[in-house]
Simulated assay, not measured.
Amino acid sequence: MNGTVLSVNGRRVVSDDEVIRAACHFFLRHGTIDMDGLAAAMCISRATLYRVTHGRDRLLSDVLWRLGDRMLGEARRRRTRSGVDGAIEVTHLFAEQLLASEPFRRFLAAEPDAASRILLTHTGRLTERVVVTQQEIFHEVGLDAASADTAYLYVRIIESALYAELVAGRSADLGVAEQAARTLLLAAC
């Protein structure tokens, strides 16, 4: 979404950012986004909501990104190490927050198909955002030699643990994923 403002027949003007903020609050309360409920909470029509968001999956993607980016920001601020250890530390701090998030766990359990589409496919647009951010984290911790391909593989390794229930029907094993990610970084840098 690009910050556009929508006005329909002189009715309430709604920005992309306003919708995403409201949707984040809705998601944190309910572990999902119900478009009718969100439209009612925002005092706009469902049609207006869809015009601004271009669909529920896209809105969920934007909400999950915004909430996840906040968690990543917190993990980045709490980092105490550099190099490979610093990258792993940020990942660990982020993963702890994400796995402890009750709304996120409810979403994964209640809507596995939507979660898979949004979190694991190109149409969800999340992986691309996370890969770019992971490259920034690599730079922050001094891993300047890490390529975009390395960042992509790193993210996919960590996602395999975070979303293990969706992908393989098993519990997350972050320790194994962190070990594999460390091996990747040591080989690449």
Results as ranks from 00 to 15, higher is better:
V5R: 12
T127K: 08
V63G: 00
S45M: 11
A95N: 03
M71Y: 14
T133K: 04
L162R: 01
A181V: 06
D62N: 05
A47C: 05
F94V: 01
L143A: 07
S147M: 13
L174M: 03
I88Y: 04
L120F: 04
I33W: 11
E102L: 03
M1A: 06
A87S: 01
Q179R: 15
L49A: 03
G169F: 04
I137R: 00
C43F: 15
T121G: 05
S7T: 06
N9L: 15
R117S: 11
A145S: 10
V131F: 00
C189L: 11
A161M: 00
L185V: 06
R76L: 08
L64P: 02
V90G: 00
A40Q: 12
L126M: 10
G37I: 06
T183D: 13
R129W: 01
E165C: 15
F138E: 12
D36R: 06
A187P: 12
E159H: 14
H92S: 02
L60C: 08
H30L: 15
E74D: 10
T80Q: 01
A177F: 04
A161R: 01
W65D: 06
H139R: 14
G169T: 01
A148D: 08
I33E: 00
L38V: 07
A100G: 05
G169D: 01
L108M: 13
L120T: 07
H122W: 12
T80S: 02
R81F: 07
Q135H: 09
Q179G: 07
A40Y: 08
H92I: 09
R79I: 00
V63S: 04
A168D: 13
I118T: 08
G142M: 14
L49T: 02
T183C: 15
L59N: 01
F94M: 03
R106D: 08
R170C: 14
R70N: 06
L72V: 13
C43P: 14
S116G: 12
Q134I: 10
V13A: 13
E140L: 14
I137W: 11
S160V: 09
L120H: 08
T150N: 05
S171A: 09
E18K: 12
T91C: 08
Y163G: 04
Q97L: 05
A23V: 05
T127P: 13
E89H: 03
D17A: 12
T150W: 06
A180S: 11
E159T: 13
L185H: 09
D57R: 13
R12E: 06
V167I: 09
D16A: 13
A148R: 15
L67A: 04
A145H: 14
G142I: 08
R125E: 09
D36I: 03
L60A: 02
R156A: 10
L99W: 04
A109G: 09
I44H: 01
E18Q: 11
T91I: 09
V52S: 10
S116H: 11
L108V: 13
G83W: 01
L166Q: 07
L98Y: 08
R129G: 02
I137C: 07
Y152D: 11
A161T: 07
H92N: 05
R51F: 11
T32K: 12
G37A: 02
H92C: 05
